[in-house]
């Protein structure tokens, strides 16, 4: 566990939780990133402006924090381009079908004690761990 970074994890987590609380308190919206992305690009009855503003803040805040901090591994998977696209496809398909991702289910849904979010979070955590196990210790081991 020599890579464990408890202080930055807690500080970052508190900021993420604050962001979700601000969005619900002011706008009455759930900070679920997969849903915000989908809602921003697809035409429907729902308003899209706030979604684009949130995403602009997400990208802009990320850029500033990355410039100020020293994070040489940010944004690097170490995988081939087609594999990264495949991973994106699975995540996009799965989060749409399952109505949420780590933020919507894991941070907002669990806070509301939603049984759906609890089930979804358990399943994607488990499948993520199984996938890493297979890739690193079965195929790669």
């Amino acid at each position: 566990m020599e890579n464990f970074t408890p202080v930055s994890a807690i500080v970052g987590g508190l900021l993420i939780g604050t962001a979700a609380a601000v969005l619900l308190w002011l706008n009455g919206r759930i900070a679920g990133i997969s849903g915000i992305v989908t809602g921003a690009v697809e035409r429907g009855g729902e308003p899209r402006g706030w979604r684009w503003m949130f995403l602009a803040g997400l990208i802009g805040g990320g850029v500033v924090a990355l410039l100020l901090g020293d994070q040489p591994l940010a944004g690097i998977t170490g995988m081939s381009g087609p594999m990264v696209i495949l991973a994106g496809l699975l995540v996009g398909f799965g989060t749409r079908l399952g109505s949420g991702c780590t933020s919507g289910h894991g941070i907002c849904g669990l806070a509301r004690l939603s049984p759906r979010s609890l089930a979804a979070t358990g399943v994607f955590m488990l499948m993520g761990a199984v996938t890493v196990y297979v890739v690193r210790h079965v195929v790669g081991g």
Binding site: T18, A19, A20, F54, I59, G61, G62, L66, Q71, G75
Partner: peptide, 21 residues
């Protein structure tokens, strides 16, 4: 409000290093 929430969220993700796969 959405912009501010997005900024906080993005900064939090970077500080916690969740942007590093």
């Amino acid at each position: 409000a959405a912009l501010i929430a997005g900024v906080l969220f993005g900064v939090g993700l970077v500080i916690s290093q969740m942007t590093s796969p």
